[in-house]
Design a protein around this nucleic acid. Structure first.
Lengths: 222, 222
DNA sequence: GTCTATATGGGGATAGAC
DNA sequence: GTCTATCCCCATATAGAC
């Protein structure tokens, strides 16, 4: 709507954020990004070294804020629960909430970063894996033990698998690839962030707490 | 292991399947694919019209079989349950099972198609969306009503959201981007297909059956 | 800091010999 | 059916004028 007089660097970050999210890293060309940003092609190489460095800058700009929020929320919930492990829903809320509240907190332009963040967990490229490790190391170090303590009865391998499923559900929802819109039609209201968070937390909490499936379900007739 | 004398078309399909899965559609070049297949570059344009057509052929080759399996399994479970809706676990098993049993049923070369199938639900490109709609139309038409009947107490919007979460967890697991291996380390044993299926079904069934989260936002439109 | 112009390479697709 | 050679476009990155 409003063309604020943003500097070239910010315009590039905004455009890159949007196009990387929409098309993926390989398919979003610097030509398309600079055109969308309304700046010259050579500006990419002046302000950032390369396309890869631009991508990393896009991630760093948002993830610093998001992951700090996550850690603060988790710490708050843990403090509130005193020495006992906080309820699973609180841990999930602390992890999921900040990622879905980007639009409300940082404005509409930040909302496309949600999709990009979803892709971070999904695309296998060497590029993104390094970013993932660097950016999420601290978060994983605090959240994984919290999950373990909240689900003490779960065998480690089972917990690992369920966390993998959880990441998939979160990443897919963040990525916003409304695959199901084709099949579900208008029943699929993306609605507001808080509703999505509430639904996601309820789903994940139940999944994580599922009774350990009968091992080797022979004759599972159920 | 054994270099069977496969014809060019099959060699191309195998190589494309693997490289599309590993690198994504845009990043897997025809030159890399033909080199991996040990055939000439021009063979792509002789046997298939274009890169896009090659991709569609890769999907069609496996999805015909997989989705037929899904429908047969669902029909069998429904028949066994007579007029009542079959249990949720049976529906999930029918949907998830065939996708994870590719290696056992079709051999090791087919296993990389699992990752490609995961990407199908994740990548937003126009290419894949069309394939998705064509290949999964029949499956969705039978499975969605089955889920509805198995979960009659769930509001449609809530069910739609949970199916979206479910697709995310399945796609991420199929895609095999073991993001969490970085953080979970050796606890993350990919193990065998049957264990993965069992864990996934247990997780999803519990998530889908979760009690409807306390509706804090009683601001429903009407 | 921002532009034009270009270097350099890789991409998909095709023509035409064999 | 398979090959060589090539067309033409687009990619990233950079040099050098302003």
């Amino acid at each position: 709507m409003n063309d604020k007089p943003l500097d070239t660097k910010t315009r590039l970050l905004d455009a890159a954020e949007r196009l990387f999210a929409e098309r993926g890293f390989a398919a979003a060309s610097l030509r398309a990004i600079t055109a969308a940003a309304g700046v010259n092609l050579a500006a990419v190489n002046y302000h950032f070294r390369s396309k890869q460095a631009l991508l990393e800058a896009v991630f760093a700009r948002r993830l610093d804020w998001i992951n700090r929020q996550r850690l603060e929320l988790l710490a708050a919930r843990q403090a509130r629960a005193r020495r006992r492990p906080p309820p699973l829903e609180d841990i999930l809320e602390a992890f999921v909430g900040p990622a879905f509240r980007l639009r409300a907190e940082l404005g509409a332009t930040a909302s496309s970063f949600q999709r990009l963040m979803g892709r971070l967990f999904i695309e296998p490229g060497e590029n993104l894996q390094r970013i993932l490790k660097e950016q999420f190391g601290g978060v994983a170090a605090r959240f994984l033990p919290a999950f373990e303590k909240a689900l003490p009865q779960l065998p480690p391998a089972e917990l690992a698998a369920r966390i993998h499923f959880m990441v998939g559900a979160i990443a897919h929802t963040l990525a916003g690839t409304n695959v199901m819109k084709v099949f579900l039609g208008d029943r699929c209201d993306v609605s507001d962030a808080e509703t999505t968070i509430r639904r996601l937390v309820a789903f994940l909490a139940a999944g994580l707490r599922a009774p350990c499936a009968g091992r080797r379900a022979r004759r599972s007739r159920s």
